[in-house]
Nucleic acid binder design. Sequence first.
DNA 1: TAAATTTGGGACTTAATTGTCTTAATTTTT
DNA 2: AAAAATTAAGACAATTAAGTCCCAAATTTA
Lengths: 142, 142
Amino acid sequence: MLSSSSKYAVNAVLYLAVHSNDKNKIRAKEIAEAIKLPSPFLSKLLQSLSRENIISSSKGPTGGFYLTKQALNTPLIEVVNIIDGTSRLEDCVLGLKKCSSEQPCPVHYSVQPLKQKFRKELQENISVFAEKVKNGEAYLFV
Amino acid sequence: MLSSSSKYAVNAVLYLAVHSNDKNKIRAKEIAEAIKLPSPFLSKLLQSLSRENIISSSKGPTGGFYLTKQALNTPLIEVVNIIDGTSRLEDCVLGLKKCSSEQPCPVHYSVQPLKQKFRKELQENISVFAEKVKNGEAYLFV
DNA sequence: TAAATTTGGGACTTAATTGTCTTAATTTTT
DNA sequence: AAAAATTAAGACAATTAAGTCCCAAATTTA
Ligand code: FES
Ligand code: FES
């Protein structure tokens, strides 16, 4: 449902949400080891997110990636949108040019409401999902 | 959410459900033209479905692909399962080895029920979706 | 029986995604 | 000022998905 890249990106962002802040930056390599991922590839994803100001970064020794307090209030879906674009979650499931009730495909009324709810659930802020990890309700990279 | 291949396959199967029967077989080329798809590629998809007995086929002139009456009672999701496998709709959205409530990822409780409903909706028989096309409630390949 | 038509199967090509590597720019420490 | 550590950027390689092609097998028609 999501590309591998955006799965990695979401995991990494939630890892940052749990472990980092502006006083405690985390190197790409550390995250990559934690979530068992090739570090150069993760770096590229983090750079994309940083370029779009979803996460923050700083160079040099003691540098790394981190989330500011206000960044925690970003809807999680924005991470997906930057890596995958929006079409994956919005396009017609059967490939029609446009997903609409004017010209619905045969499965439209069965699945369109679910697609919409899916996007809505991912509109929750990063902090909401990070909180679940912090208090042991949910797990990353297992 | 589905691969391009299984989108094509579902479209083609529903086209057959609407237009074919054991007395009226349809050539791959005709379907490919109707749903605007490269015919050799569609042929391979139809052959996979035929091998798994989701659809029927016969060779030679007057040959082609078709759906028997009982084939109309196949759950639509089987088409997807044959082309994509089941994992795409069952695996953890964030890429955990296993999607489960014992070891849930941070978005599990938000999206797992939706994934399940999605699969359930596609359990409806092929005939149910074909009927919508026949009576003008839904459209193929637009 | 021969020719024509269609599916079946597999090798091959192309395109997209995923992953790696090299070098530059920035910052900190010494 | 120099060295070390880190992100930034982009070229390159490998893998997977998508699409093409060729020829064999089966069936119908003449
Ligand atoms: S038209 Fe196909 S999902 Fe909406
Ligand atoms: S564990 Fe991630 S969706 Fe169920």
